[in-house]
Structures are given as C-alpha cells and as structure tokens.
C-alpha cells in the first residue's frame, strides 16, 4: 500500500461512516415527514393538467423546465459525441 492508497482508504472510510450515520438519521422508509408539495400535485394533477399519469404531469407541466434542461443535456451529449468523432481534416 502506497501513500495514495492509504489516503484514499481513509477518505473512503470517513465518507462511509458519514453516509451510514445519515442513513440512520433519515426519516423511516415509507413515511415521509413532509408532504406539502407532492400531496398538492397528487390532488390536482387530473384537474390542472388533464393527464392520468402523475409523473408525466410533473415531468412536462409542473417541472417542464427541468425536462427542457434534460432534453438539452441529451442534445449536448449528442453534439459532443458527434463533435469528438468528427473528421479533423477538411
């Protein structure tokens, strides 16, 4: 084990301990403590967006701008990959 590996192992241990701790401090699985935003969406999705699928109504209506960003990420990736494999000489 060289020095870098020891440092990395120490870092990993610290992160692991912190993560396990935060897992213990989270609210119990299946019982979210707060529900203000999501309950509103569940109650109003059919009336406001006309869609049966709550997730689609979030994706394209309530958080439509995120989806534009998501589509942009994919567009960026395609542009990047095409650019990286372009022919270099004209």
């Amino acid at each position: 084990m060289n020095q870098r590996n020891i440092l990395a192992a120490a870092f990993l241990t610290i992160v692991a301990v912190f993560l396990m701790f935060s897992a213990l401090f989270m609210h119990p699985f299946g019982e979210p403590t707060s529900q203000a935003m999501d309950q509103y969406i569940i109650d109003n999705t059919v009336g406001e967006t006309g869609a049966n699928n709550g997730v689609t109504s979030v994706v394209f209506d309530y958080r439509g701008f995120d989806t534009l960003g998501e589509a942009t990420v994919l567009f960026t990736a395609v542009a990047s990959v095409v650019m990286l494999f372009r022919r270099l000489k004209k």
Partner: peptide, 20 residues
C-alpha cells in the same frame, strides 16, 4: 378535454402529448 373523474383518454392532457 379535462378527464371526468380520472377517466382520461388519448385526447386529454393539453400540451403534454405533444411534448411527448
């Protein structure tokens, strides 16, 4: 169209299907 009591159909959803 707005679905009546949750019975949405292919013609509902506003811009959602178009965006899809």
């Amino acid at each position: 169209a707005i679905p009546v009591d949750g019975a949405a159909n292919i013609n509902t959803g506003g811009t959602l299907p178009l965006m899809n």
